[in-house]
């Protein structure tokens, strides 16, 4: 399978002088197209920073990240923005929808930036995604009138609209109740099964257990990683047990 993301010896430091803090220490890894990856680790271990580095949201101090054949450090600000818009999708812990516009507008916003000519196609696709994620009929709803789960679904629709190669999720279920969280994870799993690479940052062993590859981080390094067979709805408890065993082992 093709490599979609490669990181070579990346180091990320914050602050300078006495206050310098090394958050990522010489990490190298490869993510292949279609993989379903989770990054786990205690608070401050660098998991979110790693995801920001891999997605180009943040620059690395040393080392190199390649995304879909492009070296991120060599891209200009606008080229990075284009890359994020066309090839990446983001799902955040808090629903990051804009307050001033309705749900449908929020979903189509990134796509409308430069594809206004295909307005009706975009809208049609957004409606299909809303249908798929179970929020159809809420197109004109003000986002202040929606539940957290509904907002997260809308955020997923926005991330999927441009057919991205990779979906990044930073604790996508972290702010949801268990019922909503389960539903959102089902949607994300389905996305991956349809061929999209998915990379999640999570604390939650239940979430990680549904992925195929888990990177465990500690003190800015990948302490270990495990692989699991593709989740088919069976044996969830066993998978969770495996994940928690490693967590215990690492003291996470």
């Amino acid at each position: 399978m093709k490599n979609i993301i490669t990181a070579q010896n990346i180091i990320k430091k914050f602050g300078v002088g006495d206050e310098e803090q090394v958050v990522l220490r010489d990490i190298s890894l490869t993510i292949q197209a279609g993989e379903f990856v989770a990054i786990m680790g205690p608070s401050g271990s660098g998991k979110s920073t790693l995801m920001h580095a891999l997605s180009g949201m943040d620059k690395v101090t040393e080392g190199q990240v390649t995304f879909d054949g492009k070296v991120l450090a060599l891209l200009k600000e606008n080229e990075l923005a284009d890359l994020r818009r066309n090839k990446m999708g983001f799902i955040f812990q808090q629903p990051t929808l804009l307050k001033n516009i309705n749900v449908l507008d929020n979903i189509i916003l990134p796509a409308m930036r430069d594809k206004r000519k295909h307005r009706s196609t975009i809208i049609k696709k957004a409606q299909e995604l809303m249908e798929r994620t179970g929020i159809s009929g809420l197109e004109k709803r003000d986002i202040t009138q929606m539940s957290g789960g509904q907002l997260q679904r809308a955020g997923i629709c926005r991330a999927l609209l441009s057919n991205p190669k990779v979906i990044f999720g930073d604790e996508p279920t972290g702010a949801l109740n268990s019922k909503s969280a389960k539903e959102i994870m089902n949607i994300i799993t389905q996305i991956n099964q349809n061929g999209t690479t998915v990379m999640l940052v999570t604390h939650d062993a239940q979430v990680a257990a549904k992925t195929e590859r888990i990177l465990f981080m500690r003190d800015g390094q990948i302490a270990t990683e495990m692989t699991l067979p593709r989740y088919n709805g069976q044996d969830l408890h066993e998978r969770i047990d495996k994940v928690t065993a490693i967590m215990k082992e690492l003291g996470i």
Partner: peptide, 13 residues
Amino acid sequence: YTIAVMKSFGFTN
């Protein structure tokens, strides 16, 4: 925050 969100999904400066 809104600006950061928009940048995250590909809006430029």
